[in-house]
Structures are given as C-alpha cells and as structure tokens.
C-alpha cells in the first residue's frame, strides 16, 4: 500500500466519522462509540478489500460482508451511501418515521446482507454463506465483523467450531476489540482474554493488529490465506476513536452529542484531516 493510498484511507475514514456523528446528532439516537471504533476496519474493507459493485448489489459473485455487531450500523450506512448503494441524502432520514435506515442493519437497505441486532448471529450465517461458496467452488469470500462484548454469546463459539470443522478458508471474521461494552470494561463484565488463544484453539488463523492502523489492517486482510483455516483478525481499537472526549469511555456506547459536543467533535476531526493533508 502506497503512502498516498494510506493517506486517502485516513481522510476517508475521518470524513465518514463526521458523517456518522451528523446522523446520530440529527436523529438524537445511535451507537456512537462502537461506530467510531469500527469505522477504520470498515473503511479498509469497503475501500480496499471487498469485491462489490454498488450498481449490482445482488451480483451472486459479490463478496459478502456481515455486520454482526449490528448496533454500529451508523458506520455501515455512511459507507454504503458514500459508495452509492443508496442516495447520500437519505442519511438524513436515519431513525425517522418509516425510514428504511433503522437502528440496526436491514436487508431493505441495498448492500445489507443480513438483518442483525441480536448479537451472536452473524458468524453462524457467515459460516452458512462461506459453506455455500465452498460447495459451489465459487470465489466468493465472506467477512463478518463482531463486537468483543458479543464474544460472550455461546452461539459465536458454535460457529467458530463449525468454520474450522468445515475448513472455511474463504471466511474472515474480525473482532472490534475496543474493550468496552454497555456496562463497562469487557474484562470486568465477563473476562474474554485471551481471545487470541481462544480462537487459535478453535483452529483459526489469528492476527491481532492495531485496528486504527491502516497498514496493519490491510496487511492482515492481504496476508496469504492459510489453506483450510478460517481467518480471525482481532482489531484492537478505541471506543469513540477520533473524538477525544468520547474515547475509551463506556458512556458513549450509545451517547448522543449535544450541540456543543457535536461541534467540538467536528472541529477535532477537521483539524485531524488538515494535519493528514499537511503530510501529503
């Protein structure tokens, strides 16, 4: 990945952060912290990794992305709109009466593959998709983003076992490891560490990376697939990343910024963009 490509991803993810904060600010609802922690991962996926065509959202040969942590839907919607799956203007309807842009992913929205919102479902469905692709000898790849709090759901581990059992080397799962869930620190609510060892024990090819480092993320997604093994990318992130007063604070799991906080956040993101441009 070239310096210019990295810079482009940084600028893109920062403008997406601004857009998703705007959605949440206008709707007065949303899952702010987790959207901000996962947006860099989604930026790499949607602008670098996934083989998808917004003009043909149902192309059978498209890669599939499943947002198992459905509450971070704001990050997904701003990307799908930016990619042209639906008009950017529609983002203003988020959470409004009869809008298809509801608070968790819905298949009524072009580009969304699965309705999520109940945690611990996405990986099982992804296993089914990857298994279908494997049996069809198709080149379709399947990607699934989970939360770290979500790892407490037993069904995640049923799916983990199955993916390894079926040797699904066309499947990549990602954990947004921001270490905070709605009630506080993940390790206090229900100890998860070591996730690396757990997923390795389940037979996955595990990569732990800085989930805000675009080089590290693209490298992990681009690493040669280990034959017969599903891939896990544990992306170490910060909840609320990019807005300093939100960062690493469980209160912002579904906190909504007021006028002053919103403008403060925009200023900080804007000044970061200028800093990035200054390095061009």
């Amino acid at each position: 990945m070239t310096h210019a490509e990295l810079q482009a991803l940084r600028l893109k993810s920062t403008s997406l952060r601004k857009a998703l904060l705007g959605m949440i600010y206008r709707a007065k609802t949303g899952h702010t912290g987790g959207s901000l922690s996962s947006v860099d991962i989604l930026t790499v996926l949607y602008y670098h990794v996934l083989r998808i065509d917004p003009k043909h959202p149902k192309d059978p040969n498209r890669d599939r992305f499943i947002m198992s942590k459905g509450h971070s839907v704001e990050a997904l919607y701003v990307i799908l709109a930016d990619k042209g799956f639906f008009p950017l203007e529609e983002l203003k309807t988020f959470s409004k009466f009869d809008s298809r842009l509801i608070g968790h992913p819905s298949v009524k929205v072009p580009g969304v593959e699965l309705n999520t919102g109940a945690l611990g479902h996405g990986l099982s469905c992804s296993v089914g998709m990857a298994l279908a692709a494997q049996r069809d000898r198709s080149a379709v790849r399947v990607f699934c983003l989970m939360g770290d709090g979500e790892q407490a759901e037993g069904s995640v581990w049923e799916a983990a076992m199955a993916a390894s059992n079926f040797k699904l080397d066309n499947l990549t799962a990602i954990i947004d490891r921001n270490r905070l869930q709605i009630s506080g620190n993940t390790e206090t609510v229900m100890k998860l560490d070591s996730l690396q060892e757990k997923w390795e024990a389940f037979g996955w090819d595990v990569h732990t990376v800085d989930g805000h480092d675009f080089s590290a993320l693209t490298e992990a997604f681009g690493a040669p697939q280990v034959l017969g093994k599903p891939r896990m990318i544990i992306a170490e992130t910060l909840k609320g990343k990019g807005v300093s007063y939100m960062q690493d604070n469980a209160k912002w799991h579904h906190g909504v910024p007021d006028d002053q906080q919103y403008h403060l956040a925009l200023e900080e993101l804007e000044s970061y963009m200028q800093e990035v441009r200054g390095h061009e």
Binding site: L114, L123, S124, C125, V127, G128, M129, L131, A132, A133
Partner: peptide, 11 residues
C-alpha cells in the same frame, strides 16, 4: 439455523 439461513441466502 444460522448456517441454514446463510446457505439459503445463496439460493
């Protein structure tokens, strides 16, 4: 059922 749903989404 999750796997069945994933398979069904592939036709």
């Amino acid at each position: 059922i999750g796997i069945a749903a994933g398979l069904a989404s592939f036709g």
